[in-house]
């Protein structure tokens, strides 16, 4: 019966995606069936609601923010399969002998930075940090305490004295963190 999920990726598309993202064909097919599965409206692209319907994501305190970051450069508030794969490829584990364009350390940090950067001005202000902190802990910590945490974090990371954290400062602060491991997930073959 002609539902759209039966339309499959062509060989060329798989090759192109493999070139671009580094996933293996098996992984691409697996993720494609996941994509189709999430796409409840059956029109070949995902909306924010489609993602937030995953309960495990919806109960994540930062779920909204993650979805927002994924949709950051989406046209029309929908992402197609290619964009979906591009986002996911950032979370591929880094392999030593292979070319890592999309899953480099910098790309991974960029994603995390965007999570904080609510207004897309490439700087994390005190208010933005406070908002993210508030998302994380809800009402469990008093506003005063949260502000002092935000102040201190900015102070520690800020190098040029503008009371904001730029991407370079962000990277410098996290220089000792094992980003490669913490921001990588295992994809099934």
């Amino acid at each position: 019966m002609g539902n759209r999920s039966s339309i499959m990726l062509s060989e060329e598309e798989i090759n192109e995606i493999q070139q671009e993202t580094g996933f293996s064909p098996n992984q691409i097919e697996r993720l494609y069936s996941r994509f189709v599965n999430l796409d409840r409206s059956d029109n070949g692209s995902l909306s924010r609601e489609d993602l937030l319907r995953i309960p495990e994501l919806a109960i994540n305190p930062l779920g909204d923010r993650i979805v927002h970051t994924i949709f950051a450069d989406a046209f029309d508030d929908r992402i197609n399969f290619r964009q979906f794969m591009r986002v996911l490829s950032r979370f591929r584990p880094i392999k030593k002998n292979k070319d890592n364009k999309l899953n480099s350390r910098e790309q991974k940090l960029q994603f995390a930075f965007k999570m904080y950067d609510l207004d897309d001005d490439n700087k994390i202000s005190r208010d933005e940090l406070l908002a993210v902190l508030h998302m994380m802990v809800g009402a469990n910590i008093s506003n005063d305490q949260l502000s002092s945490i935000a102040d201190r974090t900015i102070m520690e990371a800020d190098q040029d004295g503008d009371n904001m954290i730029s991407f370079e400062e962000f990277c410098a602060t996290l220089a000792k963190t094992d980003v490669e491991e913490k921001m990588s997930i295992r994809f099934l073959n």
């Binding site: 996941r34 495990e56 962000f170 913490k182």
Partner: peptide, 26 residues
């Protein structure tokens, strides 16, 4: 130590893992 900038990472990782595969939707 209270809050560090990298405290977001486990939450992001968990969120993206849920997008790739979760036990409910499938």
């Amino acid at each position: 130590k209270d809050f560090q900038l990298n405290d977001l990472f486990p939450l992001i990782k968990k969120g993206v893992e849920a997008i790739v595969d979760d036990d409910f939707t499938k």
